[in-house]
Design a protein around this nucleic acid. Structure first.
Lengths: 189, 189
DNA sequence: GTCTATAGTTGGATAGAC
DNA sequence: GTCTATCCAACTATAGAC
């Protein structure tokens, strides 16, 4: 891990705990055991740190969705894969995912626009999969909005739960969450 | 609504949009159409605004829980009542609830301790109700942690969904959310 | 109750020595 | 690549006139 990656990882931890606006470049430097001025040899500024962290994770979601949406599985199987994608990203990028969830509104300029585009497309793709599931009868014929809200709410919160848990509990989550989330929307067979 | 309440409501809106740390007393004053110095005739400082907003909502949750936990209904009925309590608070205190969810870590001193105590007790009470439901056979015998995580994740996110929706969609949510959330944990009859 | 003026501190970022 | 020193803008909050 090079110096820039160390800075990004440390920043992700601090941003997760206190939020982007409450963390100063001096805080970050102290946590890195260096002086604030030295940070600027590796990154152009505070904004670059934020956009690097958020866009990295947003692209992971987009890439995962792109793989899942075009495969030949049923809507139900795709929904299961999406739940596992969220768990995997929450495990691989816990801190950066927290930053995405809480500090995306502090992105500026092009980075803000890029993030909003990725997020909008992701949600549209997610919705499409649910719509297919309703039309094929795999899912209940309930409000698409309520269904999407419930799924995304839980999936967006996984990062809050992960850091406090043992490997055993995370395995329990991987096993139980897909069926728990999908049993509510599955049509009775 | 007196001047202090106006300030608190305006602050809640701004904190919700940008977060406590990113909103300045000048921003708040501008939104109130006054000068920053004048705010201090009504409130003692920025921290007082934050703690007022968060503790007001936290007490609403605690009061609701205190009423529900001692009544004679089944665990299933209590869980339904808790879901409706969250929807009601999200409707009545949308902005302040957003502040509670995103900026509680910026509370200082006694206010921080008070909030943490209320929150911990609320979660313990919630967990107790689920435990009773499992032991009476009303709920599936699955991981209590997963069950609690899924319920609280969705309930904590309601405030994000409410402002974008019509009254009609909110009524749909009130009708569908309890059964959607509880169908996943209900034991098969 | 609101204002102007300002104190005192802290923020992001740069210059230039080593 | 890291440091010291520093710029300058912005922050919370106070003093005191009206």
């Amino acid at each position: 891990m090079n110096r820039k990656e160390q800075i990004l990882n440390t920043a992700a931890q601090l941003f997760k705990e206190r939020g982007y606006s409450a963390v100063t470049m001096r805080d970050l430097a102290t946590a890195m055991d260096m002086k604030a001025a030295s940070l600027y040899n590796h990154i152009s500024g505070k904004q670059e740190i934020l956009s690097s962290l958020i866009l990295k994770v947003a692209n992971e979601f987009t890439n995962g969705m792109d793989r899942i949406k075009v495969n030949d599985d049923s809507a139900f199987a795709k929904a299961e894969q999406l739940i596992l994608l969220h768990i995997k990203i929450a495990l691989d990028y816990t801190d950066a995912l927290a930053v995405l969830n809480t500090d995306w509104m502090h992105l500026e300029g092009i980075a803000y626009q890029d993030y909003m585009r990725l997020r909008k497309n992701y949600e549209l793709d997610f919705k499409s999969i649910l719509e297919v599931g309703i039309s094929t009868g795999e899912f209940k014929n309930m409000s698409l909005e309520t269904m999407l809200f419930n799924l995304l709410s839980t999936l967006r919160s996984i990062y809050l739960w992960i850091p406090k848990k043992t490997d055993q509990e995370i395995n329990t989550l991987k096993m139980e969450l897909p069926s728990l989330l999908l049993s509510g929307i599955k049509s009775y067979e």
